[in-house]
Amino acid sequence: MTIRCEIVSQDRLVFEGDVDIVVLPGTDGEMGILEKHAPLLSTLNLGVIRVRTDDTEEVFTVTGGVVEVQPDIVTILADAAESVEEIDLARAEEAKRRAEERLEGDAPEGDLDQYLALESALRRSNLRLEAVRKYRSGRAQLRKMDRQDPN
């Protein structure tokens, strides 16, 4: 049995399809959504969304947003979301380096907003790098085998 899953970010449709399970980083903790779930509205944390269909799993990073669950559909309204496969590693690393540099460098004291912005930029690039390391294909194969182990 499947549930429809739609992931949209502010500038495009990221994913759309019928899936077995969606695992999301909810504000109150990670949750897995199967079909016939009770209606639910939740905010999302920074993290990864995993969408599993049969034996394949697609992974997306998300920087926050809202999810609406209806018994037959999960709608994810992400602030920004991208598939792990399409993350630009070099750019993420560059962004991380820049954020770290500026956080340590001019020490933007007093300017709390700027500090927080930098910090969240750093968190976002860390998330991207981490997600690529853990989930990018090749490694996905490996994890699939892990999952089958207990059987």
Binding site: P39, L40, Q70, I73
Partner: peptide
């Protein structure tokens, strides 16, 4: 979607007001 019957009340996380 017809089957959904969107009249069912939501579960909210973290809380109704916040969200």
């Amino acid at each position: 979607s017809e089957s959904t019957g969107p009249s069912a009340a939501y579960v909210y996380e973290p809380g109704q007001t916040e969200i």
